[in-house]
């Protein structure tokens, strides 16, 4: 997977409401609602309008979160977000 880069829609295209620790996320281009748990909202924020590969994503997230050794988990989340249409390959 390394080297593949991902991008998420600009933040202006995503509405978010916190619901007891989870996030109800409305994705404007698709008209779809997703209930997501961390780190999905954080991944989307880190990729919003700015492509990155997995390594770069880890670097961006590590500024605010402890993501040591979480690369494979992040890769799995990216696959899910891509299947949901929230993340794509630029």
């Amino acid at each position: 997977m390394a080297g593949l880069s991902y991008i998420a829609d600009d933040e202006s295209l995503v509405r978010k409401v916190e619901l007891d620790g989870l996030t109800a996320l409305f994705h404007v281009p698709s008209g779809m609602t997703h209930i997501v748990a961390p780190p999905a909202p954080q991944i989307l924020e880190a990729l919003a309008g700015r492509p990155a590969d997995l390594k770069e994503l880890v670097r961006r997230l590590s500024r605010n979160f402890d993501v040591d050794g979480a690369e494979s988990a992040l890769a799995a989340r990216l696959d899910e977000l891509e299947a949901a249409g929230l993340v794509s390959r630029p």
Binding site: P29, S30, G31, M32, G85, S88, R89
Partner: peptide, 13 residues
Amino acid sequence: RRQALWEAEMARR
């Protein structure tokens, strides 16, 4: 319209 365009986008991807 929006949902139809999204479906097209997903097929494109």
